[in-house]
Write a protein that binds this DNA or RNA. Structure first.
Lengths: 332, 332
DNA sequence: TCAAACTGCGTATACGCTTACGCAAGCAGG
DNA sequence: CCTGCTTGCGTAAGCGTATACGCAGTTTGA
């Protein structure tokens, strides 16, 4: 059915190895036989079998990507750049979407290992909950890169300076006169908390433990948290800690309650996603360099594949405040 | 380095074939040896080599996906359901993003063929420009499904009744009193045109050829087209034909010119993407059943893989008008 | 001018798994 | 007691490619 090197060899009167040499542009073959073989290959519509090549070379020329939610425009944009960088380097991308399900994340990574991808990029959504499959990758020396970090394990990663982002966000809010700024920690909260505290300090505002609210994952988590914020006596005037995608949900909740942004509640996002500037109330947010994140994670992974024993490459990228309207004017 | 069935066989004193039987849960093996083998496999931390299995079985248990732009929330949402349906059936997904580049689309499909994925889902962005790689798929009997259609080739597909969608959209606009409705055709325009004309007819509005404007691909195409619309004497009061993602760009252009939606120009989208209801002016649009599109394209592809010679499965899904604010109230 | 290097191939083997088939032992039925 | 089926393995072959190595003939260099 499908044509193999053997077929071409038979028809051109050479050995399979010679065909391999011709097709892979190797030396030690004469111009003439090479041309003859290439011509015959084209005539037979030969398609190299990458599976067989992978088995022989122990290299699949494919990378794995594990992400929580492609529907989040931030993830989508990063994915776009991961894909383009991968294909530029002749790698294909095997994608798994976990929906924040840790079991599926674990299963996805194991599946990628069995499929013998050359390396894996993981956007691990919960920095503080380690996952067995990732520990295994580390232990077995399987090349992988984290987008973000996982606590308690020394790995290659590309991440954002979250403390810096949180600092900029909180400082912005404080500068506008907000004193009670609720801090919703969905994940990576502990990184952000440093920046949050620092900005409060500089603004002469005391840190209030009751203002930091731990969210459960998923959109319900957001709703619950907003509820808690609104129920507080001495109600906060601003909320920080959600990413743009989550802020969208928060806006919806507030809207349903007849509360206006930013008059009744200031909101600040994280990511600076495509639609952020197009919202009813354009979103003030912390921009992340998505192209860089994507590009660098692939580049680091490829380096790791070359030198698996090299000490971890770790990149920390800077985020940047983008002021729009969701935090409003100066208070009073 | 990595442990194989051979290793397990040696350590348990059986043949490699017996190990294969144990691990793949085949019959003709005693409970005891099976347990012994499984235990040893676990002890050695054995990971099956899917590449070798694929070569032997001539089946990779992976599907290819070719999409134009993962950054478009419509595509992202469909992709999400494609992925989940694929993994539910033990398939992995190899994703290529073309950025509307036909050459990359062609290359992506060829790459997937060489990688011997069991089938391919293609979101071909230009229904009217056939692509050689797709013709080859067809000719060689390689299983694939189109999300949308390609003219001049009989294939399996899952698509939306675009004429119906266009009809609903145009009727809605006509019902609000719009007489001059610009029709921007980016792609699949000829399908939509039928519905557009039908609704005009019912509304007692003459079809005006000059109102249909062909857009070049990409965001610049949108800008140009908007420019043309605005430059027309007897300027149209509404624009139809763009998808939600493109409408976002249109809104931006209009906004920059100080034109208000819907007062100065009514806009209607296509897709009903996640952010549509959150925009400055919430978007009236034609909703597509994204989950169904994703699920069905995988299901059809899997059927095709089972029976490659079966006549094409072709599914036509219904879209639905969602009225919000971007077309405004009744005119006058 | 002769050894050394290079050219253009072929043969053998490996990659890790699956599938077809063979074969001895055990067991049932007549 | 013999036939025929079943159980529990093993052996052989194959999937399509890459790599190591060998070898005759030719070219190169001092």
């Amino acid at each position: 059915m499908t044509v193999t090197m053997e077929d071409i060899a038979r028809r051109t009167g050479v050995s399979q190895v010679t065909v391999s040499r011709a097709l892979n542009n190797r030396s030690r073959i004469s111009k003439e036989t090479k041309q003859r073989i290439l011509k015959e290959a084209r005539r037979l519509n030969y398609r190299p079998n990458a599976v067989a090549a992978a088995l022989a070379k122990k290299r699949t020329l494919s990378l794995g990507l594990v992400i929580p939610d492609i529907t989040n425009p931030f993830v989508a944009e990063v994915t776009k750049h991961i894909e383009s960088t991968a294909t530029e380097n002749d790698y294909s991308l095997v994608v798994y979407i976990t929906n924040n399900d840790l079991e599926k994340e674990d299963a996805s990574i194991r599946s990628l290992m069995e499929r013998r991808v050359d390396g894996i990029i993981i956007n691990h959504s919960r920095s503080n909950t380690p996952i067995q499959a990732i520990m295994d990758l580390k232990k077995e020396g399987f090349p992988f890169v984290l987008t973000g970090v996982m606590e308690g394990i020394e790995t290659d990663y590309v991440m954002i300076d979250l403390a810096e982002g949180a600092y900029q966000a909180t400082r912005h809010l404080a500068g506008l006169g907000h004193k009670r700024i609720a801090f919703l920690t969905v994940d990576y909260g502990h990184f952000k908390q440093d920046g949050y505290k620092k900005a409060l300090g500089e603004g002469g505002i005391d840190f209030d433990e009751s203002l930091v609210i731990r969210c459960r994952p998923g959109l319900v988590g957001i709703e619950e948290a907003i509820g808690k914020v609104l129920a507080m006596q001495d109600r906060p005037t601003a909320i920080f800690g959600l990413n743009d995608f989550q802020v969208l949900r928060a806006m919806e909740v507030l809207d349903n309650l007849g509360l206006a942004v930013p008059q009744d509640m200031a909101l600040i996002g994280f990511d600076d996603v495509m639609f952020a500037s197009h919202l009813k109330v354009p979103l003030t947010t912390i921009a992340q360099p998505m192209e860089q994140i994507g590009k660098m994670s692939v580049e680091i992974l490829l380096k790791k594949i070359e030198k698996p024993t090299h000490p971890p490459w770790q990149v920390m990228l800077k985020p940047q405040l983008v002021v729009r309207e969701s935090c409003g004017e100066k208070l009073r």
